[in-house]
């Protein structure tokens, strides 16, 4: 038997001696850097390309994916909700002062749900929720909210944010090897768009300008952000108030809008316009 023997091999010759946690940290940091860079590049490219999509094409896309929610909320039993009519009249007053591109139509939709939110999405659709409207103190702040959302539409932010999200999620999924990708099947994507802070600031400025032109003062416009700040403080969580999620801090917004008003020499002292007498009644309908 001496001819055949199995010497005990030394340990560790077939395995790595580097600690697995150290390997994990190195690889994880590296992949986070790579994915962040790729996501940024994809997002920028997506937004750049989307801004060049004709608005008519965006409107067709919106009709395809938003038709259900638009039909449900814009017309109940053939009779228009008084709040809907009021919001539409405000849009009509603001629109001429916003230099909207030719063919761009703003469609506001009143949502009688206690959600403290308002958002603009593809195809010029703006959704205003009862929960947020109920908290606004005057018409100026409501006009500011509407003008802010209209400015998003004018600046093509919804299509840019959509393309940004799609480009990032598709690219990252492709990079990580997910094959089952439903690119345009997620309707939720269009109702939960995240605009960058730069986009929000631009919408604030254009919105304030429109409010000034309609009311002759910017007084009351910043009440919108005071209200939002109060809602944030009372909720204690951004999750409960979707409107807050990616918006710049309200204090900063108020300050930057005040600076803009001073620079433009816009009136800040004229009396604010109250909400219609039946506003509360409309909210409860």
């Amino acid at each position: 038997m001496h001819k055949y023997h199995n010497p005990q091999p030394p340990e560790g010759i077939n395995t790595s001696q580097t600690h697995p946690l150290w390997v994990f940290v190195k690889l994880f940091v590296a992949i986070v850097i790579v994915l962040t860079a790729v996501a940024w590049l994809l997002g920028q490219s997506g937004a750049w390309l989307a801004a060049r999509v004709p608005y008519a094409q965006e409107a067709r896309l919106a009709e395809r994916y938003l038709s259900d929610s638009v039909e449900k909320n814009s017309n109940s039993q053939g009779k228009k909700h008084p709040m809907q009519g009021y919001l539409e009249s405000l849009v009509s007053r603001l629109a001429p002062h916003m230099q909207l591109p030719k063919g761009m139509r703003i469609q506001v939709h009143y949502e009688a749900e206690p959600v403290e939110n308002a958002y603009a999405t593809l195809g010029g659709h703006i959704f205003m929720y009862k929960g947020l409207l109920a908290k606004l103190p005057n018409e100026n702040s409501l006009a500011m909210l509407l003008a802010h959302e209209m400015a998003h539409v004018k600046l093509r932010h919804p299509i840019q944010a959509t393309a940004q999200s799609l480009a990032i999620s598709t690219g990252i999924k492709y990079l990580l090897g997910f094959s089952n990708m439903d690119l345009l099947g997620n309707a939720g994507l269009y109702t939960q768009l995240h605009f960058s802070r730069t986009m929000e600031s631009a919408a604030d400025e254009q919105g304030l300008q429109a409010v000034y032109k309609v009311y002759g003062t910017v007084n009351g416009a910043s009440d919108l952000f005071v209200t939002l700040q109060q809602l944030r403080d009372s909720d204690g969580s951004d999750d409960e108030v979707p409107f807050f999620s990616t918006h710049p801090l309200d204090v900063q917004r108020i300050e930057s809008l005040a600076t803009l008003a001073t620079r433009q020499q816009w009136n800040t002292t004229l009396k604010t316009t109250p909400l219609p007498a039946r506003f509360g009644e409309w909210l409860s309908q």
Partner: peptide, 18 residues
């Protein structure tokens, strides 16, 4: 999880060696 990270960058899949 570690092997998936290895698969992205290539090289020895040390987590499967043991």
């Amino acid at each position: 999880f570690l092997a998936a990270l290895h698969a992205f960058f290539g090289g020895r899949v040390t987590s499967y060696e043991t």
